[in-house]
């Protein structure tokens, strides 16, 4: 496994106005994330976890400071460049799965490849392969509503994995699951990340999930601290 730097955040701050008040979501964050790391991010609600995840996911740019992803200066990129970056390097997993309700499991996975220009045949083959990896070979044509919470999250994981991203950003991936399913999902995530040398950054309130990570960060009032 290489230990090259995947992310490098230098003096990253993010502020925005909310209900007429200036909110400082991140304050001078200094952070380096190496390839293949498994990091858990914890902290109180409103502490800046989601904002950090959005900055890391190139969904947003910092108000000040520098963000580098794989050597790409994220904070200086245009929207279309950010979109391209997201499509190729970053996989997202959400607490509410965020599957498209009108599409089957297979089609939900294919959606992630549609943005990258992969042809239909290869798209289908890769989607089926990835869904098989996450244990859903027999649920390819099921709509999200026909799947359990754990199965939906497996589809979401497959959707994130199918494009072979450099990093998986998971926002409360087990927040809606029972303990047994939580453990199954985390086992799956960690296994896939390890197998494919994918950096895994998990935002969680769940200490059990956080303890599984090799590195833990705590974020409060926009300030990130390492937890030993």
């Amino acid at each position: 496994m290489t230990t090259s730097s995947l992310y490098k955040l230098t003096g990253v701050s993010k502020s925005f106005r909310q209900s007429g008040k200036e909110v400082h979501a991140l304050r001078g964050v200094e952070l380096t994330v190496n390839t293949g790391e498994h990091i858990a991010v914890q902290g109180p609600t409103g502490g800046g976890k989601s904002t950090l995840l959005q900055i890391l996911g190139a969904l947003d740019v910092p108000t000040s400071g520098e963000v580098e992803l794989n050597g790409n200066p994220v904070s200086k990129m245009s929207r279309s460049e950010l979109t391209k970056l997201r499509g190729s390097l970053i996989g997202f997993i959400f607490q509410n799965y965020n599957l498209i309700p009108t599409m089957t499991a297979q089609e939900n996975v294919e959606v992630a490849l549609a943005a990258t220009g992969v042809n239909a045949t290869e798209r289908r083959a890769r989607a089926i392969e990835t869904l098989t990896k996450v244990g859903l070979a027999d649920r390819l044509q099921h709509l999200p509503a026909e799947l359990s919470g754990g199965q939906q999250q497996r589809v979401a994981i497959a959707r994130a994995l199918v494009k072979n991203p450099a990093v998986l950003l998971a926002d409360e991936p087990t927040g809606n699951l029972d303990e047994q399913t939580r453990d199954e999902i985390m086992d799956l995530l960690e296994a896939q990340a390890a197998e494919n040398e994918i950096t895994l950054i998990v935002v969680t309130h769940d200490s059990a999930v956080a303890k599984r990570a090799g590195r833990r960060l705590n974020i409060k009032d926009g300030v990130v601290r390492e937890v030993n």
Binding site: T83, R86, G87
Partner: peptide, 15 residues
């Protein structure tokens, strides 16, 4: 949420 997710997955706005 659906469109936000698609954009997160790399879908361009015009798509």
């Amino acid at each position: 949420r659906e469109f936000g997710t698609l954009k997160a997955l790399g879908w361009k706005s015009n798509r």
